[in-house]
Nucleic acid binder design. Structure first.
Lengths: 203, 203
DNA sequence: GTCTATAGCCAGATAGAC
DNA sequence: GTCTATCTGGCTATAGAC
């Protein structure tokens, strides 16, 4: 790893602050409602300065997505290091982390319809590579869990993978939180249970 | 029911055409990306004429939501009329319908973050009343199914209700459809199974 | 690289003739 | 009620001084 000059470190820190703001605002308001002016105000710099760091609003969102995927990879690696956990345990743990992040208002949410954003994301090599890596790691655990009989074999691994990914934007968390009746832990437990155990009664 | 004059009937038909366009565009692009110009072009009238029928873009979206809730109520009533169905069967059937509508590109999707839209919706008495009625009808079936042991009692009825509602915007359907590998029926079956039976293997 | 100021665009809503 | 033409505001992005 090359040593960074002081100037480069300052740059890093500033960009990190920008991405943090973007991440939070994306979680709060979504991509379309978030304005670049807001981001600049939140970071405490001028809008034009933002554009010296990131070429476009889409690039800002992509950076936030890259960061959350990096966090996810760290969680995955931490789970992989636990010697006694089953594949199913690991998937549950990663899914739990996803729900917690969303409930904490730290999960950036992107509209799947916005085409300019989609284009920017699939053109972003770093983002795509990370997404593939996360998918592969989870995919291996899914297949393993199906083999050892802890996850259903009725569903293709692909369907299970997508279902887990979708927990990152599950609106049920927000509904329950809006009610204000339950603790975050309780909410996460319920959604996790509905996801893995289903709504139907177990025999 | 009062007889409508010819002029009023023409009005009805036109507004119905407008709501149809809005419904489809909302399903396709979402509220933020949908423009009023597009709606006008799709219906084939001038934008100013649209505003003679609906006061705002939010009102257009509300009308589409009212319509889809009316469709849902019809489905619910049709299910209620089936003499031999269990509460659980009825919930599955209504959920299946929801998934089919979404997969057919006919489910209007609204961003939960947009505040002006939220305000417009909760101010719309017709929308709120319908939403409450649908919730109550489903809620009764949920409690009943929990009592007869076909739905889990581990989760509060509220959680189950929200989980079913959330199927209307489940991104898993879109992911699987985008792959182009599977039939719509197959996709619906999988998602329905993941929802009710869960991802974990059944004993 | 940071700022202020502004260009350029687009979309929601309206004016006013017919 | 329908149209054409326009207003208005907000947002992304940039120019240009320092």
């Amino acid at each position: 790893m090359a040593r960074l000059s002081f100037r480069e470190q300052v740059l890093r820190v500033r960009e990190d602050a920008i991405v943090s703001s973007v991440n939070r605002l994306l979680a709060e308001k979504g991509f379309d409602s978030m304005t670049v002016d807001e981001v600049a105000a939140d970071v405490g710099i001028a809008k034009a300065s933002l554009y010296k760091h990131f070429a476009s609003k889409e690039a800002l969102a992509a950076a936030a997505m890259v960061r959350v995927l990096q966090r996810a990879m760290h969680v995955i690696e931490a789970e992989a290091d636990k010697p006694d956990a089953s594949a199913s345990d690991r998937l549950r743990a990663v899914t739990r982390w996803t729900l917690q992040v969303q409930l904490a208002g730290e999960m950036p949410s992107l509209p799947s319809q916005n085409s300019t954003l989609r284009s920017a994301l699939i053109a972003d090599r770093v983002y795509i590579d990370l997404l593939m890596e996360v998918s592969e790691r989870l995919g291996q655990w899914i297949v393993q869990a199906q083999r050892d009989g802890s996850l259903t074999s009725q569903l293709p691994p692909e369907v299970i993978l997508y279902t887990l990914f979708a927990r990152a934007c599950d609106p049920v968390l927000g509904f329950l939180k809006a009610g204000g009746q339950h603790s975050d832990e309780q909410i996460v437990d319920w959604v996790l249970s509905s996801c893995f155990d289903g709504l139907a009664a177990r025999a």
